[in-house]
């Protein structure tokens, strides 16, 4: 089932939540909408579900005009951040809800409902909780039940709004892997909203990065990380060193110094230089574009993180870099720094 969104505009009062958004989701994809809060990602998801209506634009699901129908007729599975389980029903009845409210003509028999709910509970590996009430479950269990409930109606597409947002870090990690496996098993076209870049990059086949109601970039997790399309994406995904530079006559200047860097295709004028923290080679003084003094070193895991004061740039600039552990860095060392990969974007 493909989903197509064209020219969607949505305003709340004077706030433009979505500004001419176009998006196409292919059959069987698991897509992440990633962005900071207020970027419009949840609004877009709710418009696709039919819980919110756009001011203008087109939404089609499998070629069919979705805006002609309300949420109840769209056959869309929706999973809420805070689960939204029915507290007065046990787990079985929660999952069976979508089957029980079907029009009498197509409603399944009690035996069929029982079988289907049993299968779904097995799918989310919680068959043993059928008689419990939601208040007796942990957060992770509740969210899996919410997912089983959404799948009960055999939805054409599955939408998840910050599905792991209310869970603690460890459960979150487990559920990420679990969701990816589940998607491989059932293969329903899915979109999930998250503000957690790690979650988006780890779970999705494709990532849509949003900011201020616009789509900044659509690409594979590798693409958005390795080849960010804009300054926003570079700054939002992964950790970067950002330096204010100026591009003039195809040369890159920082303060009153020419840097031995290529301006790429950034337009002349004030720009920003982005370097990933681990894309900086450390060598002896004089070996790189930048000179710096080590101010602090924190070692953990396979990397060490160092605070470096860049010198000779008319005013000290403090940056953080990640270097391999085998490289000995001591506080007070004077070192040379060479960006191995970098991007320059003109200031907007």
């Amino acid at each position: 089932m493909t989903i197509e969104v064209r020219n969607i505009v949505k305003e709340f009062g004077s706030f433009r939540a979505l500004d001419n958004v176009d998006l196409r989701v292919e059959t069987g994809e698991l897509m992440a909408l990633l962005g900071p809060s207020g970027s419009g990602k949840t609004t877009l998801l709710r418009i696709i579900a039919g819980l919110e209506w756009p001011d203008s634009g087109v939404v089609t699901i499998d070629g069919e005009d979705a805006l002609a129908h309300g949420a109840a007729e769209r056959h869309v599975g929706f999973v809420f951040q805070h689960y939204a389980l029915f507290r007065h029903m046990n787990v079985f009845e929660n999952v069976a809800f979508g089957l029980r409210v079907q029009p009498r003509k197509i409603r399944k028999s009690e035996a069929e409902i029982k079988k289907r709910v049993g299968n779904l509970l097995d799918l989310v590996q919680l068959g043993w909780l059928a008689d419990r009430y939601p208040s007796q479950l942990s957060g992770g269990q509740r969210q899996r039940i919410a997912l089983a409930r959404a799948l009960a109606i055999e939805p054409r597409i599955l939408l998840l709004d910050e599905p792991f947002g209310a869970l603690d870090a460890k459960v979150r990690k487990e559920l990420r892997a679990w969701l990816r496996n589940l998607h491989e098993e059932i293969h329903v076209t899915s979109i999930f909203v998250t503000h957690d870049q790690e979650e988006a990059l780890e779970v999705a086949n494709r990532v849509v990065v949003m900011d201020k109601g616009r789509i900044e970039q659509i690409g594979s997790p590798g693409d958005v990380y390795e080849r960010p399309a804009s300054a926003f994406v570079h700054g939002f995904i992964g950790e970067s060193i950002v330096l204010p530079v100026e591009v003039r006559d195809g040369r890159v200047r920082l303060g009153d110094r020419d840097l031995d860097l290529i301006a790429q295709d950034a337009a002349a004028g004030p720009s920003k230089l982005f370097v990933r923290r681990h894309d900086v080679a450390v060598g002896p003084s004089g070996s790189g574009v930048f000179e710096g003094a080590v101010k602090a070193v924190r070692a953990f895991g396979p990397m060490q993180r160092a605070d470096i004061v860049l010198g000779g740039l008319g005013g000290d600039i403090l940056i953080e870099i990640d270097a391999p552990r085998d490289h000995s860095l001591k506080v007070g060392d004077h070192i040379g720094l060479q960006p191995q990969r970098y991007r320059i974007f003109a200031d907007r």
């Binding site: 929706f78 939204a84 029915f86 809800f97 979508g98 029980r100 409210v101």
Partner: peptide, 20 residues
Amino acid sequence: ELEEAAECLGASRWQTIWRV
């Protein structure tokens, strides 16, 4: 959100009031 959940699961307005 409870009502929205019920609606997404295909419940009519009356079913939502009555069952949720």
